[in-house]
Design a binder for these strands. Structure first.
Length: 116
DNA sequence: GGAATGACTGTCG
DNA sequence: TCGACAGCCATTC
């Protein structure tokens, strides 16, 4: 259980500044293919708990359509958008240009860092 | 143990 | 491009 969350958070931390990744992408990289929902849920657990919440850039994770997964105007939506804009990521409405900002990791380097 | 619930995804019209 | 739908899976009731 916790092990899965650890892998997810660890993977999220690898997303470079100014880039974003989708839930499914994170799930794959964390060794949990097809479990995008698990990623979403685990990210939802981070902030409330006192774990390494500040270390996990949850706002760099969006859905596969390149959009923020919160209702427009909600508190979390605004916060996420703000944080992304601070990193030079262009957010139009809820949309982000995936072709420009989606993280495209070097798999070999990634495996080295994760040490799975 | 069964049913409902999500910060999801891919496919189809 | 967009909405509806069916899988998906750990957690919660």
């Amino acid at each position: 259980m916790n092990k899965h969350y650890q892998q997810i958070w660890q993977t999220v931390q690898l997303i470079p500044k100014g880039k974003v990744a989708s839930y499914g992408q994170i799930a794959d990289l964390a060794g949990l293919p097809g479990k995008a929902r698990l990623v979403g849920r685990s990210l939802g657990l981070v902030p409330t708990k006192g774990w390494n919440n500040n270390e996990v850039p949850w706002y760099r994770v969006i859905n596969s359509q390149g959009k923020i997964s919160f209702p427009v105007g909600s508190e979390l939506f605004e916060k996420q958008k703000e944080l992304l804009l601070e990193e030079q990521v262009v957010v139009i409405g809820a949309k982000i240009k995936l072709t420009e900002f989606q993280w495209q990791p070097d798999l070999a380097q990634l495996l080295f860092q994760l040490k799975f």
